[in-house]
Nucleic acid binder design. Structure first.
Lengths: 332, 332
DNA sequence: TTGAAAGCGCTAACAT
DNA sequence: ATGTTAGCGCTTTCAA
């Protein structure tokens, strides 16, 4: 807990001026190799670590970005965060994490804090893919939205192409020979539910097909999936596959179907959405699912932020494709 | 993206010196209320936000703490993080998040970064409760370990009392009239598995009882739970309750028992560990579980860090009690 | 090749 | 009650 070592102490020990020490430590200027070495050894010996505040005061760069999760940090934020950290860490940037918890006041407070800390840029994330109002106007630093998107089309937003995910799910079911496909998903008003349902319907339409039953909207829960199994079977529709709006729904559905004596995938094939490990592995049989590559989205968002920081901003929405991960629930 | 407003611009607009402006904005010194107001209005008008780097260079405080997750950030880190953020946000501190991903090199790199950024303190977290080597020696800032603990007993570590959790689980099963209790858990070498098993055995011993079968060690997975159900039933031991080392194991076990025609809780009562929402709610019936209050651990760790920063360090391990959350799987 | 000096934006001690 | 000034630790001209 003692006082930190400054560059002037290093300079003194090496017998040079602070300016020279600075150059030696940062590999700038023209110094005799011997001098450079002497300074480096002195720094080593004293355990010198440069004061980032002093440096950034001088250079205007903090090598720091802020990450604001608008709703609470959770299952979706983590991969985004890891991906972003990955891309930023390689560039030696640090991340300020701010959890706004769905509270606009907290959000603005954090924004202010980040600006006062002179972050080089800001990444805004959230649990929903639906567009949100921009976090601020004419901010002095670049902002990139990840997973959620900004309602302002000129803002840079990196989002999953959920319709593409649905397309891949349906395409896969068609490829394994299924034709009577149902769709069970979350709340009708939920943006993701809408995008995924629309993607499914459109893909079938392109093949001259339609869903075997109207879309079954409910909740993003296993309980709803179990309930939906009963509904589906009671309609008498001769369904041979179900595309579910989430892995949780799919897992519940799988259980419901099993309880009713249906065998997966023989009688009914199943595709989920999210590729959430505990759900896809816990399901019996293991669940084929659509992966939005959240880590990739986080990484891309961070890369775009870095580009903007370096004066090459990218504008507009960047939709990123999904990936289908086949497992036993659709095995032929 | 324009140049930021400085305090001297505010001072100029308000017609005062920078010193006066500083006092006005920070509520220090003796100023005429009218002057103070004029400065505040000028700051407002220009959208002034103080430069944190300049301030901290002067004051030596950054109002920033680092949080290093030694293994990758995940299910356990999140509540810890939220709890810590909670306690720190109230004190207007910001959090640098560092994900060391089980890599000692990354860890030391982050440590160095945090020191260069002159954080006021550091919280170290990880997925396992097992003691780890201290992250550094004679660091210039206080460090608190959360969930994981430091092998150095003088370091401040806030950890869950897992034996207490086991005690509560067994106590609850005894209270609802069960006597022939089995214990199915994770790998034998895993610290948490050991603590929880020991807690269970000790609690039973205190009542003059023993486990109905030897502890069944396996993995922290649903698959193991399902498998364990078969093993348990095949032993012929007339078990009327199972305490599981994790909710995942418990959920798998529940499924296995159901498949074998056993009814929960009538035939066999079940208690899990972690109180992980998707597991306890997804299980049928809903799962009674032990909650380690990770958020509380994060909050406490942050509070202790704040105390240390303010010159009142707390030393040693702080074990925090668990909480039992009763649900249908043990209903009488 | 190195040193001296100015200045980044702010706070705090000291003058007035 | 307000202004002046020094200085936090560093980088960066500019001079030697």
């Amino acid at each position: 807990m003692d006082r930190a070592v400054t560059i002037s102490q290093v300079a003194a020990l090496a017998g040079v001026s602070t300016g020279t020490a600075s150059k030696a430590l940062n590999g700038r200027g023209a110094l005799r190799p011997e001098t450079r070495l002497r300074v480096q050894q002195a720094a080593e010996q004293l355990g010198f670590v440069a004061n980032a505040a002093a440096r950034s005061l001088q250079t205007g760069r903090t090598y720091t970005v802020g990450m604001i999760t608008t709703d609470s940090i959770g299952r979706f934020s983590i991969p985004l965060l890891i991906g972003a950290e990955d891309a930023l860490g390689a560039g030696q940037m640090s991340v300020f994490l701010c959890d706004a918890r769905d509270d606009p006041i907290r959000e603005q407070y954090y924004l202010r804090t980040l600006l006062s800390r002179k972050v080089d840029g800001i990444i805004v994330t959230g649990r929903r893919t639906q567009a949100r109002q921009p976090i601020g106007r004419d901010l002095p630093v670049p902002v990139v939205y990840a997973f959620i998107s900004s309602a302002d089309g000129r803002d840079c937003s990196v989002v999953p192409d959920e319709a593409d995910g649905a397309r891949r799910a349906i395409g896969h079911l068609l490829a394994v020979g299924r034709r009577r496909i149902a769709h069970v998903t979350g709340p009708e008003h939920h943006h993701s539910a809408q995008m995924r349902a629309a993607g499914a319907v459109d893909t079938l339409a392109a093949e001259g097909l339609r869903l075997a039953t109207p879309v079954l909207y409910g909740e993003w829960s296993e309980a709803w999936g179990r309930q939906a199994a009963g509904i589906l079977l009671s309609t008498g529709a001769d369904v041979d596959a179900v595309f579910c709006g989430s892995d949780q729904v799919a897992r519940g559905l799988a259980e419901g179907l099993r309880d009713a004596g249906r065998e997966i995938p023989r009688d009914i094939a199943l595709v989920g959405f999210d590729n959430w490990d505990v759900m896809v592995d816990g399901s019996r049989p293991a669940l084929t699912s659509v992966d939005m590559d959240l880590e990739g989205i986080g990484r891309t968002a961070a890369e775009m932020l870095l580009a903007a920081i370096n004066g090459e901003p990218v504008h507009g929405h960047q939709a990123r494709p999904c990936r289908l991960v086949p497992r036993a629930s659709t095995a032929v």
